[in-house]
């Protein structure tokens, strides 16, 4: 964790999500439903990163995510990591990992799949975590990283 950055807008309590590829920031916001929370949130984007060229960072005050919730972002930001902050101190660092199953979030790439015709939730088995690949529970086709379309 970059100490200098944390100082920019220090968080008393909450979660810092770091190492999000800059281009995927808004999808991360969508996946975590941050549009709909009232907590103070700070975003930074197009920050220099050795890994990505440009990265984004999200700081959410007074909010700790369940693993099942935060792991969903592994789909688009597999190298994101979390800093759990309590009283200005990093008390825990975590990396994200794709869960074995995923509901919603992503579309099935098979145009003949029922999930693309009905107003219904998609459901996938994660058949590969790195690189991520999702097997549709309904049609059985595998959607790979190149074809991810976030709902």
């Amino acid at each position: 964790m970059d100490k200098k950055e944390l100082k920019v807008s220090a968080l008393k309590n909450g979660t810092v999500i770091d190492h999000i590829p800059a281009k995927d920031l808004f999808q991360v916001i969508k996946i975590l439903n941050l549009e709909k929370v009232d907590n103070p949130i700070t975003f930074g984007t197009n920050l220099d990163s050795k890994k990505y060229g440009k990265k984004a960072i999200v700081k959410v005050s007074d909010r700790y995510f369940e693993d099942s919730e935060i792991n969903k972002i592994a789909l688009i930001a597999p190298e994101a990591n979390l800093n759990i902050i309590k009283n200005y101190e990093v008390v825990e660092k975590k990396s994200v990992e794709l869960p074995d199953q995923i509901k919603g979030i992503c579309k099935c790439m098979n145009p003949k799949c029922i999930t693309n015709a009905e107003p219904m939730l998609t459901k996938f088995d994660v058949v590969s975590k790195v690189p991520p690949a999702l097997k549709c529970y309904y049609c059985g086709k595998v959607t790979d990283q190149e074809h991810f379309v976030i709902i």
């Binding site: 003949k112 799949c113 029922i114 999930t115 009905e118 549709c136 309904y138 049609c139 059985g140 086709k141």
Partner: peptide, 25 residues
């Protein structure tokens, strides 16, 4: 004609479903 349609139908039906062909699936 759509793949996975029968699986979905079996989730919303209150009676058993037998798949008589769902697309190429």
């Amino acid at each position: 004609p759509l793949e996975g349609s029968s699986r979905y139908a079996s989730e919303v039906a209150t009676v058993p479903v037998i798949n008589a062909g769902d697309g190429a699936h």
